[in-house]
Design a protein around this nucleic acid. Structure first.
Lengths: 260, 260
DNA sequence: ATGGGCTCCC
DNA sequence: GGGAGCCCAT
């Protein structure tokens, strides 16, 4: 059987918020080492990768690998039934077609359980190479979300220009042009710091819409990491407390001669 | 060139909030002495007059007069990209067709700039005579906004009756009639005081809808001044910190024999 | 026309 | 702090 207990159901809620607009359904692969999810978004433009390590759970047991295909809308309805600080336990029998969620309120007086039907989804296992990136930016996730939200008003593309000095985000559209420059921080250790590890300057352009969807994961972590290399998908990573991460991959737009 | 720096971008946000529902586009006339805007609202019913004195800006430079025609929806999108306590600088070259807004966050690490295309708008310069009014009421703007909001529920007109004792606001409609009497304060110097300078009692009726739109400027100032004379447009004035004012002009309704 | 974000109200 | 309604964006 499979059984995993998480101290904070809120973490699960935030994870769902971070992926539900990209994926309507998804397969959670549970193994001895933890839970993994990898999938192209509904439009097959970007890729979502979620990793939750077994040791990050309060208790974790997985006798046999199980793949749980879930409708994320249904999962959302179930997670609405718990509070952020409930203790949540997910359970499934080997080869079962249902998963059970048990929510225990912190005051111990209330215990709820919900069964959800599982689905058989096409498994598309996608090898994602671990690469060295020409530029890695770490910044407050709230600031990232803000920049993306602001510039999305201007155009459907946002250009990231990374140099030693900082990152410039730009977008152009009908009303004009917007540029937001975030300078590298002098004090590197603050939670609010923006830091840049740079092997070479990189300028890449991405679809505003997807960046906006990725930014919804800001609730998971105060910090976000952007990894970029020329002509290679951007990686946007949010760490999840002491348990794992969500990463989003998005290919850059190719500049044609018209600058489109 | 034209360049004006304002310490609090929030002031600009509030000014826009105060006019954007009346005007979809407007021309800002910049001269040596400051920035002026005068326009009839979209329906040509009321008149908006904004005045920002050069000396109210942190720095102000205007080599040649420039008229900047702006789409206020676009301006709103740009102002969404700054925080209330950002420092904002507006710049335009002489005869340029774009204006640039530079926002500097208080932490200095973030600088954004936005170019907005300017428009050529019909210039309707409206001479507004400075007049002595039969009655001038000064009251808290929040209270004014509240009265207008409350009475707007009743009818499409609100009657202002000013006497030595105070102001009575009234409205009648299908539900019935509402009257709100605000008495002149005994202590005149409080921020919450209502004061009345009266040469003669005045009773005038105005369209609720426009009063409600004017009341949106309440964020700009704790106090509002209402100036009235018989058969002459009402003036609703909100001072803007140490820099200027917004005034709204609205002609009274003419009572016919049916009381409409 | 639908979904999401923001603001005001409870 | 959470929920509902309004406005804006897609």
């Amino acid at each position: 059987m499979f059984e995993a207990k998480l101290q904070q159901a809120g973490t699960l809620k935030k994870i769902l918020d971070a992926i539900k607009e990209l994926l309507t359904e998804a397969t959670f692969d549970c193994t001895d080492s933890g839970i993994q999810l990898q999938a192209m978004d509904n439009s097959h433009v970007s890729l979502v990768s979620l990793n939750l390590r077994a040791d990050g759970f309060e208790t974790y047991r997985c006798d046999r690998n199980v793949s749980m295909g879930m409708n994320l809308t249904s999962l959302g309805k179930i997670l609405k039934c718990c509070s952020a600080d409930d203790v949540v336990t997910m359970k499934a029998q080997d080869a079962a077609d249902i998963v059970t969620f048990v929510f225990e309120a912190s005051n111990q007086e209330r215990v709820s359980d919900f069964d959800m039907k599982l689905m058989n989804l096409d498994q598309e296992h996608l090898g994602i190479p671990e690469t060295d990136y020409a530029c890695v930016v770490k910044m407050p996730s709230a600031e990232f979300a803000r920049v993306i939200r602001d510039l999305s008003q201007f155009g459907e593309s946002i250009t990231f220009s990374c140099s030693k000095a900082g990152v410039k985000f730009s977008s152009t559209g009908d009303i004009g042009t917007g540029n937001v420059k975030v300078a590298q921080s002098s004090s590197v250790d603050s939670k609010d710091a923006t830091t840049i590890e740079l092997q070479e300057p990189v300028t890449l352009t991405f679809a505003s819409r997807y960046l906006g969807l990725f930014a919804k994961a800001s609730g998971l972590s105060e910090r976000v990491q952007l990894s970029m290399s020329p002509e290679v998908p951007l990686v946007v990573e949010f760490k999840i407390n002491d348990i794992g991460y969500v990463r989003y991959y998005l290919a850059p737009k190719i500049e044609d001669d018209d600058g489109n």
